[in-house]
Design a protein around this nucleic acid. Structure first.
Length: 655
RNA sequence: GCGGGCGUGGCGGAACUGGUAGACGCGCAAGAUUUAGGUUCUUGUAUCGAAAGGUGUGGGGGUUCAAGUCCCUUCGCCCGCACCA
């Protein structure tokens, strides 16, 4: 394939090793990147072809199973396969068959393994007189390892399937009670100098021997391939290369950058619009100044998304980055994106920062300190009988059946899938915003489920959020205007202390929940606080100063969730400033200190009573108080064998 | 097949380092207000049971005074990669 590639493979090891330093990334994303890079340790081994000076080099992670080898298989794209095909028409046909197969949907045929038996043989490196046949096989990938393997059917599923199909030897070389193929570790048998060794030692021993004989060595293989960045489309950054007949491929000099795309472009023909534009590509060679043409491919869009966040640190129109801005802003403290970017975008960005560092442009390695991946919003899909997709708002439900709103015809209800325009299973938030307002919509969405999880969209419950915010509105409107005393009364009653305790608990919980992206818990916490405050006002209506004090703190807590409403209500209470400028409330531990503590009393692990005791009571006191409980005594038929008291937590009588 | 995640009421979901399972809400039920419906308010709502009490975090087993939480095993669902040697 023709095109430009970025040599991300050079960074494979670094990108892999540094994954472990990303402590604030989801485990899932990290494993996906690890698998994508796919580092594996093994060996390369040369097999010499009989009656020829040629040889085949294979890659294996299990050199220890070499004595079980019963065939060699090479990819249809392998150099040797092509060489064979020149003389052997049947081989050529087979290769063509494989190529067609890989172009079509492979899924259906995937399980099937096909091979073509060539008339070539190789000799086994350690078993004199043993010759192995070379097959061309459809399941060998050219992009991985060397595009060639030795097949050890007893200890590899694929080789086993293949050997069964073509009646090849299946010789176990690892001791096992299990059915073949056995892919685990074990003690080696039928393996000459590897006999009686375990897998780890056998691998090491085998590689040593191969190296001594100069026919193989230790080798590390990666799954990751270089990043093909060429695209044949208009919407992308032009690749800054000029093709000159004399000088070859010449990079566009920095002072001529950036290259702008032409504005007078048409899309009426097939192919790359830049390529058939009449003038754009024609230019001069920067070296010899003769006529030359521009590269008409453009960069992959991932190219730009790999560094935009660094660009965003500064508006400077002349420079991509400024040192001070990068130093100040980078790396990104909190990055948010969908899981679908787990490997491509997020790996490319990590690669880009390193590449830029290597050319001394910026001094950043990891672009994103903390990563949150939000889940996908899903919804049921609907189709007409003629298989046309329908929007959920075109549907109504009756007796558990779905019908079209206009035609009243029955509708097919499909799977619940991630929302996508093509399947029309999308809900337009605009409708919700029109009916309930943006604040209600936001509050409702936050309350539903944590953002890192997939969720099924449902409108049910939005009225609940609506009700709550209405209640809040009325509550604050009922408070006197403009009392902006932020000082607390000196002598607090127990009721007042309790209210302040609840307030501070809520500040703590809400803050923590927001920090951890558990917005649903934050919503629950502010709701609880309001419920308490609401009841408090009914009972202690005269206590205006404290009620307003707590209400103001409460409004700051709920402000990020319902900013418009909170600002309005704040204005009602406190004339001096806007709520957006208020600092986040701090937890005052003085009000959270309790002097009494509820403790469950268990008998044999079952809760039988709950007592309230002074905090930090001695174990003796706790036990004494616990033993006064009727419902506990009822179960203490025998004298307890053991009494477990965890102060301030639990007491358990074991009988 | 490999890797990752999840499984808790009718539903969405809570539960800090093992220590009162079901917070908060939706829904539902009953009642109050209302001339109807809606709104609003109160109460109830895991489950079996009249009660006492029993049972309950997908199933089975284990560790522990104590398990949603830790360990083993098994089932189901979702996502990612997929013939990676």
């Amino acid at each position: 394939m023709n095109g430009w590639f970025l040599k991300i493979s050079d960074f494979a090891d670094e990108l892999l090793n540094e994954i472990d330093s990303l402590s604030e990334w989801p485990e899932k994303v990290k494993t996906m990147q690890k698998n994508w890079i796919g580092k594996s340790f093994g060996a390369s081994i040369k097999f010499f072809i009989e009656n020829s000076s040629d040889h085949i080099e294979i890659f294996t992670t299990r050199p220890d199973t070499i004595f079980g080898a019963s065939f060699i298989a090479i990819s249809p794209q392998h150099r040797l396969a092509k060489k064979i095909a020149k003389k052997d028409f049947k081989a050529a046909d087979f290769i063509k068959f494989c190529e067609n197969q890989s172009n079509k949907e492979i899924d259906i045929e995937k399980a099937d393994k096909h091979g073509y038996e060539t008339n070539l043989l190789v000799s086994h490196p350690f078993k004199k007189n043993v010759k192995l046949k070379i097959f061309i096989a459809n399941f060998i990938l050219m992009d991985y390892g060397t595009g060639a393997i030795f097949g050890c059917p007893a200890h590899d599923q694929r080789d086993y399937d293949f050997a069964k199909k073509y009646s090849l030897d299946i010789l176990p070389v690892i001791q096992t009670e299990e059915n073949l193929p056995y892919t685990g570790d074990g003690i080696h048998i039928n393996s000459g100098f590897l006999d009686n060794l375990n897998t780890k030692d056998a691998i090491k021993f085998c590689i040593d021997k191969l190296r001594k004989l100069n026919i193989g060595e230790e080798k590390i293989s990666y799954r990751i391939r270089d990043w093909g960045v060429s695209r044949q489309r208009y919407w992308g950054c032009p690749i800054p290369i000029i093709f000159c007949n004399d000088c070859g491929e010449v990079p566009v000099p920095e002072e001529q950058l950036p290259i702008y795309l032409p504005n007078d472009i048409t899309f009426d023909k097939k192919g790359n619009p830049l390529d058939y534009h009449p003038t754009w590509k024609h230019t001069k060679c920067p070296i010899c100044h003769k006529k030359a043409v521009r590269e008409t491919d453009t960069f992959d869009t991932f190219f730009e998304s790999s560094w935009y966040f660094a660009r965003f640190t500064d508006l400077n129109p002349k420079k991509a980055f400024t040192e001070e801005a990068i130093k100040y802003w980078m790396p990104v403290d909190q990055y948010i994106g969908g899981v679908e970017h787990a490997v491509m975008h997020l790996l490319y960005s990590r690669f880009f920062m390193r590449a830029l560092k290597r050319v001394n442009t910026i001094d950043v390695e990891e672009p994103f300190i903390s990563l949150q991946t939000q889940g996908m919003v899903c919804h049921q899909t609907f189709k007409t009988k003629k298989q046309k997709w329908l929007f959920p708002n075109e549907i109504f439900k009756k007796d558990n059946m779905f019908f079209h709103l206009n035609t009243k015809e029955p509708v097919e209800a499909g799977r619940i899938e991630k929302m996508s325009k093509s399947k029309k299973n999308v809900v337009d938030p605009q409708q919700i915003i029109e009916n309930f307002g943006a604040d209600t919509a936001r509050f409702f969405m936050l309350s539903d489920s944590p953002p890192n999880r997939d969720m099924e969209w449902s409108n049910s419950g939005i009225e609940g959020s609506w009700r709550f915010l209405n209640k809040l509105w009325k509550f604050v409107q009922g408070l006197p205007k403009g009392i902006s005393n932020d000082k607390l009364p000196l002598n607090l009653s127990n009721n007042q202390k309790e209210l302040l305790k609840i307030l501070n608990e809520s500040i703590m919980e809400t803050t923590k929940a927001i920090d951890e992206f558990h917005f649903n818990i934050a919503v629950a916490s502010v709701r609880s606080l309001f419920n308490y405050l609401y009841t408090y006002k009914i009972k202690n209506d005269v206590d205006k100063t404290l009620i307003i004090y707590v209400t103001k703190k409460f409004l700051i807590l709920i402000n990020p969730m319902v900013p418009h409403l909170a600002e309005e209500l704040w204005d009602h209470l406190a004339k001096e400033q806007i709520i957006a400028n208020q600092s986040w409330p701090k937890v005052d531990l003085n009000y959270m200190q309790k002097d009494r503590q509820k403790m469950p009393i268990q008998v044999n692990g079952k809760v039988r009573a709950v007592i309230e005791i002074p905090i930090n009571s001695t174990k003796k006191d706790i036990e004494r108080i616990a033993l006064r409980e009727k419902n506990v005594l009822k179960f203490l038929i025998n004298k307890p064998k053991k009494v477990i008291i965890i102060p301030n937590r639990v007491i358990n009588f074991v009988i």
